[in-house]
Design a protein around this nucleic acid. Structure first.
Lengths: 202, 202, 202, 202
DNA sequence: CATGAATGAGCATTCATTCAT
DNA sequence: CATGAATGAATGCTCATTCAT
């Protein structure tokens, strides 16, 4: 997870990184609340406790800022999932692991998850950022395809199967942060089981 | 579905309504593409083929416009589902009907569906609009609760179960409009069946 | 000379054109005083008696504004000279006519002349504007070349001869607007005679 | 000519002076290219190879910098002309000498000459700098007046005569640096002769 | 001396909204 | 009704200048 990347080479350096992180944190919260276009740069600066001009020391533009933000967190969630993935375990356990890692990440970084998955980024993300997104989906498709080959999952278009599960997770999480449901362990396990039922071959 | 609501009282009236509809159509397309805050009123006017000032004859503000838009379409999808709901049929058929109606609506009005379900509206929708949203969710929860009472659906928090299915549908539809999958009849039926598996008690 | 180009098709139109002209006039005065980069758009708006945003109804950018300004006046001075040029008269009279027309123009529109000739435009004029400049110089070179062919003018590089005279005129005019000399008729005639002596073959 | 004024008291000193000179050189080039207001201090620092803050060790402000620059070069050209002036020679030779010194200076330091003579400084030069300018003009007027007293030059307003010649020189030089003419020895001599013809009594 | 991160006022420009026509 | 010119506050961004290191 992208925590404050403090370089300790000098005392001055630490402050620099803290400022960059403060900007990223403020931007994340505001973009989730009001969207990219609805968030003015001076307000980000205010919330970050820096001057407006300072943002342009760290990011060449508002667009560059949102792209850095997106990449940092997309890489973080990807790393979380890739690292924990039990490559040799049976599909049932692999599925559960992916679900649990996503849940862990989303609960630990609700704003980041909401920003990454619940927003429409098309109008300001650059090609590199959008490519990152595709990489994670490919991983999901890869898992589905392998499990289908073993006859464990339903024989459907793998991308569709993956999107159904991912969509269900997003729906659940959105309901959670909007206060319509409470995501305790039991609920999370039940939701995971339901989603497994959706994809498993019967 | 909100087609051109032409009033025929006078010749002039008809044009007025057409203009209002042109504005709503243009706004819908642009809000989906670039978001509410990312869309300038004069650009909406341009796309609608009217003068910027004309928009303020029909809507008191940009916010009023987006709220009217939201309500029109939210009411339309609600009506579609309520009307077609087979109140006395078994849950399996009720579920399938809801799914099919949503699919029919989403495929017929992809921009409207994307606008309603795939965007973050919190920062500009008023209380009345947000309440409408809740109404539809209540309907879904009502269906789930009734089917659970018959022992047909899993005994989970009904709101959670509903959000999982609705999230899966959204994920599927988003993948469709973003070109990652093709939603033909077979795919749609398979997706519906998978989601039923997710919710049915075993 | 670019006076207020009022269109009289409707009463409203006239005001529109006056506003554009007010902006151009204000910009001219300020660009002469403080240069292009030293002049803020809101100050132009202030001096023109319009809102800052209004400038962008008439000009797509500050650069577009300065280019329109340059072209209008460059065309005006060119027209003044071309129109009055006595094509069949002897070189001596042609020379005097050009000089007098420039003097008349410069005294009638001192700010415009100062803007056109006494400023460094390279960093903000576009290709079309720069081309206009070249056209007028070509005319001067044409005159010199023809007069040289008759043996009336010194047999020097025509462009150089032209630039000497034009530079002398500029020096004289700059001294005038900076208050170092007084340009009455006698002074103007004496200066013209001196410049003729500079170019005439002896 | 203001070459690097290195003080050799200590090793450190020399670097300091080099830095000041580097800043002045960079500023000169940039002011000529884009004007004073069009040139940002950090860009001057960049081109000089120093940090932005360093400029403020040597100059109290951007305005101070441009005034130092102006004075250095104005003094340099004045010294060039004063020193070489043959006080007891006939006016014809004096005139040629002034012309040749200016040409030598302008060709050796084209950016400096362009900066001094081809720019509008009114909005940022202080009184002292502007006074320097007047001094050189006084020298020119003095030469003209003396030569007129001998009956060698035309009996015109001396300042006007001087401005014509100086303007012609500027026009020639500007055409040279803008690539419209080539200033070889022959051209320079021809231009000088033409200007003498302009001022000499006939 | 020298740095360059930081500042915040100021800049060019946009945009929701108004209103005379 | 409809227009679109006009507004001016607000936006994204720049830049002269300062100051802790």
């Amino acid at each position: 997870m992208p925590a404050a990347r403090t370089t300790r080479s000098r005392r001055g350096r630490r402050q620099l990184d803290n400022k960059q992180d403060a900007i990223l944190e403020a931007a994340l919260a505001l973009f989730v609340e009001r969207g990219f276009h609805g968030t003015a740069v001076p307000i980000v600066a205010d919330r970050a406790g820096v001057a407006a001009g300072t943002i342009y020391h760290y990011f060449t533009s508002k667009e560059a800022l949102v792209n850095v933000l997106f990449r940092r967190w997309k890489e973080a969630i990807a790393k979380t999932i890739y690292t924990a993935f039990p490559a040799t375990a049976p599909p049932r356990e692999q599925f559960r692991t992916i679900w649990e890692q996503m849940a862990r990440f989303a609960l630990a970084n609700p704003e980041a998850f909401a920003f990454l998955e619940l927003h429409h980024h098309r109008s300001y993300l650059d090609a590199e950022s959008l490519a990152l997104d595709g990489g994670l989906k490919q991983f999901g498709v890869g898992f589905v395809t392998a499990a289908q080959a073993k006859g464990v999952l339903k024989a459907m278009e793998p991308m569709l199967l993956m999107e159904l599960v991912f969509g269900a997770f997003n729906g659940m999480f959105r309901a959670h942060i909007e206060g319509r449901i409470t995501l305790d362990d039991a609920a999370m396990r039940a939701a995971e089981a339901a989603c497994w039922d959706a994809v498993v071959a019967r």
